[in-house]
Amino acid sequence: MIALALPASTSQDGVFHAPTLEDLHLPEILPWGAEYGTGFGKQMLLILISVALIAWFFIASSKKGKLVPGKFQFLGESAYSFIRNGVAKDVIGEREFKRFVPILVTFFFFILVNNLFGSIPLLQLPTTSHVGTAYALAGIVYLYWIYLGFQRHGGKFFKVMTVPSGVPKAILPLIIVIEIISNFFVRPITHSLRLFATMLSGHLIIALSAAGTSYLLFEGEGLMKGLGVLTLAGGVGMYLFEILIQVLQAYVFVLLTAIYIQGSISDAH
């Protein structure tokens, strides 16, 4: 981790230079449309790799299903059951949860793998630290949530989501405005930015710790080298903490998705 951060932390004049977003988001592998900043980059490559890895894992773990599962089959079944029972069934309810299990499992493991890419040496890029990825994921949830609401309630879906039961008529207009802003505007933004901001900030903190450590150890003298050891220890601690955050953010995203689905198909707001 330190070696990879060294070019971003020092220069020929021996002055510390903090890592920037350009250091974290590497140049495109196959650039096109340079004026728009588009192209096939490391992020897109990792997304394709994540899809292949997840598909392989679940196909391989279920290919030779046995009544008494082996270790690999048990791992696959446990991973699936964690979302099926711990999220879909508990949040959406036993009567209707089954049809939503596939999309929740897909979201969780897609986000989890792409988050964990940020902690794998040489890869070191959580693709969800790009805001476009987070927007796309939250946008899918948002459209699916609206689709389910109109499928269940028809034209009454808007009323279900904006008119809470038991609210006094005197303040009902104000509550409706708040509910419209909260559910139809703030919800998709916070759903995406929560994932994006957490992954980007964590990735930046790790890069900053590595850059500072490499500068202190290789450029500093005396006490400065000792401080480099402390920043190294702190960086390792932050690295392990970031792995925990990467797992939690995948879980939080899927938990909120299940809550939104439950709200769209329920009879009361």
Rank of each mutant, 00 (worst) to 15 (best):
V141A: 09
Y142C: 07
Y142R: 03
L143A: 13
L143S: 13
L143Y: 10
Y144V: 15
Y144G: 09
Y144E: 14
I146G: 14
Y147N: 13
Y147Q: 12
Y147M: 13
L148G: 08
L148S: 06
L148R: 08
L148A: 07
G149F: 09
G149K: 04
F150A: 13
Q151K: 14
R152P: 02
H153F: 02
H153W: 09
H153P: 02
G154F: 09
G154N: 03
G155K: 09
G155H: 11
F157N: 10
F157E: 13
F158R: 06
K159G: 15
K159A: 14
T162P: 12
T162M: 09
V163K: 11
V163C: 09
P164Q: 07
P164A: 05
S165E: 14
S165W: 07
S165K: 13
G166M: 04
G166E: 10
G166L: 11
P168A: 06
P168Y: 11
K169W: 09
K169Y: 12
A170Y: 10
I171W: 06
I171E: 13
L172N: 12
L172D: 12
P173Q: 07
P173F: 02
L174W: 01
I175S: 04
I175K: 06
I176N: 07
I176E: 13
V177E: 08
I178D: 14
I178M: 12
E179R: 10
I180H: 00
I181V: 05
I181G: 04
S182D: 05
F184V: 01
F184H: 04
F184W: 08
F185M: 12
V186P: 02
V186Y: 04
V186Q: 02
R187E: 01
R187K: 04
R187V: 00
P188E: 03
I189H: 05
I189Y: 05
I189W: 04
H191W: 07
H191K: 00
S192G: 13
L193H: 04
R194M: 10
L195K: 00
L195F: 03
L195C: 05
F196A: 05
A197Q: 09
A197K: 02
A197C: 04
T198Y: 03
T198M: 01
M199W: 01
L200T: 01
L200F: 03
S201W: 02
G202N: 06
G202Y: 01
H203T: 05
H203Y: 07
L204F: 01
L204S: 11
I205N: 00
I206Y: 01
A207D: 06
L208F: 06
L208V: 02
A211I: 10
G212F: 07
G212H: 02
G212I: 05
Y215T: 14
L216Q: 09
L216K: 08
L217D: 03
F218S: 10
F218K: 11
E219P: 11
E219I: 14
E219L: 15
G220Y: 06
E221D: 15
G222Y: 08
G222E: 06
L223I: 12
M224Q: 15
M224F: 12
M224H: 05
K225I: 08
K225D: 05
G226S: 12
G228A: 02
G228M: 07
G228H: 00
V229G: 11
L230D: 06
L230N: 03
L230I: 04
T231R: 09
T231W: 00
T231V: 05
